[in-house]
Design a protein around this nucleic acid. Structure first.
Lengths: 184, 184
DNA sequence: ATTCCTTTGCTGGATAAACAACACATTCCT
DNA sequence: AGGAATGTGTTGTTTATCCAGCAAAGGAAT
């Protein structure tokens, strides 16, 4: 991975930040490229230099976070169970604006919730294969189990974010870990 | 005044902000250009593109604020007495980091306090000439009066900043205005 | 429908900033 | 003392961004 020019990092950061802020203020289709470039303090043409349009910007933003999550969980699956959840929730906390915006906005990112859910489902599927020797869930449909826990997970995350993250990542991760271990 | 390129504004802002932050963390002579460029997230050579060295940076930063103050007070001297003081104190409040740092740092900006004092002295001198018909201060040396009020003014500002601006600009301006009117 | 206004992609030329490299000075260390 | 590290000021080249301006598409108002 060759390192990228400082300038592109700075402008992309500015654009993404501006876009997220705007997503929190108005609906996706009401946001113009002009809005974004103004907020980001960047020339309008510069936005086109990096993204095809606002849909592309949204896609790349989502893709980026999904990838970061994949990296993080690959790196984290070597440590303890509960600790891994905690690390992920710390990531959610650090990017709370992104996740709460994306999970909240029904009209804007209908794709995100399902993409995110798919990612979580894959994660649990792998996890289930690794720990399927414990006799629990004998005779139960694997798909049902995975979807059960994945939806539970996402739902808890969603309400935690919506409520403004009332408890620290450690405690929510611990509680969630206890519940998940009863299933898996 | 032709408008300047967005890029130079952004980098100059970043550099000045970084420099001010560093001034609050360590002594002036311990600050390197490398520190500044790192903090500003800017290439080192870019700093040299705008400033000769850190002394020049400091000078320009001071000069800039003095000029802004001159503009502000020229614009403000058409309104009420006390209101003008309030506007200036709002400026101090908005740039509290700069003023508290500069007034505090003995070793770094020994020049600033005197420059600033000179500016205040000039302001009061003009003010005195405009309102010298009121019979107060008959037979008193003008220079003494001006230096008296200027030092009082700067001293009050200094401690207000040092104490973390406990009262809002309005009230400090009003109190200061009452005291100054007893003299001028 | 026609007008008016905003937004959209896109261009081309100018320029700020990045980056890497230099020779030299300074501090640090041990 | 002497070598390593760090900081300085400057250069040349490359690249990202700016900015002004375009024609076209769409919406809203009259």
């Amino acid at each position: 991975m060759q390192k990228v020019d400082r300038r592109v990092l700075k402008t992309q950061e500015a654009i993404k930040k501006a876009f997220l802020e705007l997503m929190n203020e108005k609906k996706f289709d009401e946001i113009t490229i002009q809005d974004i470039s103004d907020r980001a303090n960047v020339n309008r043409s510069t936005v086109y230099l990096h993204y095809l349009d606002k849909f592309d910007l949204l896609d790349k933003l989502i893709e980026e976070h999904i990838n970061k999550l994949k990296e993080t969980s690959e790196w984290a699956c070597q440590v303890e169970w509960v600790e891994a959840i905690q690390i992920l929730f710390e990531y959610f906390e650090n990017h709370a604006l992104f996740f709460s915006t994306m999970l909240a906005s029904k009209e804007a990112a209908p794709s995100f919730r399902s993409k995110f859910l798919d990612y979580v489902i894959e994660g649990f599927k792998d996890e289930l294969h690794k720990t399927n020797g414990n006799g629990k869930n004998e005779g139960l449909n694997e798909d049902v189990i995975v979807k059960f826990v994945a939806n539970a997970y996402v739902g808890v995350l969603e309400s935690w974010l919506k409520d403004g993250m009332p408890s620290p990542p450690q405690s929510i991760a611990k509680e969630l870990g206890i519940l998940l271990e009863r299933i898996l």
